[in-house]
Simulated assay, not measured.
Amino acid sequence: MEPVSFKAFIVEEAAPKQFSRRIGERTVADLPPGEVIIKVAYSSLNYKDALSATGNPGVTRKFPHTPGIDAAGTVSDCSDNSFSPGQQVLVTGYDLGMNTSGGFGQYIRVPSAWVVPLPDGLTLRESMILGTAGFTAALSVLKLVNNGVTPEQGDILVTGASGGVGSIAVALLARAGYRVVAATGKPATETVLKKLGAAESIHRDELLKGAERPLMKERWAGAVDVAGGATLAAVLKATRYGGTVTCCGLVDSAELPTNVFPFILRGVSLLGIDSVQCPMAPRREVWHRLANEWKLDNLADAVHEISLDGLEAAIMTMLEGRAHGRTLVRL
């Protein structure tokens, strides 16, 4: 493929720990090695992208850099013939947008092993309304299902329900027939959460009432937790006998201040969710489900669409804790 110039959101390190952001021009020749060149149609903004854009060394160490851990578009070139030019594909996870130039540019180049064919039933735009957040939420729901949690067993809690993963988890669980209780620190989002399918919305502080006790009253048949920390500890203490809790985030804290009683007295299962290195077989299965039996038709209530020009403001909103739902980036 001949080098082409394209627009990208570029983060630069002007001096040690001093970072600036701009929309600039790049060429395909600037991109890292890989078998597949993709012309990006849509990306999405995730908290990890906001960290990358502000120079967080735990996410990105190489600059200049283009963040964007999600990308969906059409194949421009594929050197190993695993994909055809013009084929619609998506990429989430792996190193995309971390130290590999990501979806906030109009082109990416990645290994073919990272690329998922867009499943029938999803448009490029729909796939990025979901993005890593939707993929992570769907992995969480799949683990609950595979661990035997059924709708008739009782309420399923979703923490951080107004965020990207949480809001999609609410919608997916409701779509699958579960009664969902959405916990959030943003009461103003209650109307949106109920449109997504939540039967009930509670303030996150309610989860911590009585959490100083070794165990709490059994309340949840299962839970999708994005918070970690004291929130996850309280959720475990209030999960019913034989219940399952999935853990996919650390919005609250990376620490888990709990005891073993939920596990040895109630048989509660705590299952970890990793969307970054998830193998390709379950990755494709999840995207197939999202395009078919788990396809959502109500995500427009929780999505805000921007162009590259809107990224700076959206990143600041996310870092200040004022974001809710999903932010779709149109390339």
Rank of each mutant, 00 (worst) to 15 (best):
K62I: 12
K62A: 06
K62N: 08
K62C: 02
P64S: 10
P67D: 08
G68N: 08
I69G: 05
I69M: 11
D70G: 02
A71D: 06
A71N: 08
A71R: 13
A72D: 04
G73T: 08
G73S: 10
G73F: 13
T74A: 08
V75K: 05
V75P: 00
D77E: 15
D77F: 14
D77P: 01
D77T: 08
D77K: 12
D77H: 13
C78A: 13
C78T: 03
D80F: 11
D80P: 02
D80M: 12
N81I: 02
N81Q: 15
S82Y: 06
P85S: 08
G86R: 07
Q87I: 07
Q88C: 07
V89N: 01
V89W: 10
T92S: 11
T92E: 03
T92N: 12
T92L: 10
T92Y: 10
Y94D: 01
D95I: 08
D95F: 13
D95Y: 11
L96W: 13
G97S: 12
G97Y: 15
G97I: 09
M98D: 05
N99C: 03
N99M: 06
N99D: 15
T100M: 07
S101R: 11
G102I: 01
G102Q: 07
F104C: 00
F104M: 00
F104I: 00
F104D: 00
G105K: 10
Y107S: 01
I108Q: 14
I108G: 07
R109W: 07
R109P: 00
R109V: 00
V110Y: 13
V110S: 10
P111A: 06
S112P: 00
S112Y: 01
A113R: 15
W114P: 01
V115N: 04
V116A: 06
V116W: 09
L118D: 03
L118I: 14
L118W: 15
D120L: 12
D120H: 13
D120K: 15
G121A: 03
L122Q: 07
L122Y: 14
T123K: 09
L124Y: 12
L124Q: 06
L124K: 04
L124D: 00
R125F: 11
R125V: 02
R125G: 02
E126A: 14
S127N: 03
S127H: 11
M128D: 01
I129C: 02
L130F: 14
G131H: 12
A133L: 04
A133E: 04
A133P: 00
G134W: 14
G134T: 03
G134P: 02
F135Y: 15
T136K: 07
A137T: 05
A138P: 03
A138R: 08
A138K: 08
A138V: 02
L139I: 02
L139T: 00
L139H: 10
L139Q: 13
L139G: 01
S140A: 15
V141W: 14
V141I: 11
V141L: 15
V141P: 02
L142N: 12
K143C: 00
K143H: 14
L144C: 04
V145C: 01
N147A: 15
G148N: 08
T150I: 06
E152A: 09
E152G: 04
E152Q: 13
Q153Y: 10
Q153K: 14
Q153L: 08
G154C: 08
G154H: 13
I156R: 05
V158L: 05
V158F: 14
T159K: 09
G160D: 05
A161R: 11
A161L: 09
A161Y: 14
A161E: 05
S162R: 05
G163M: 09
G164V: 05
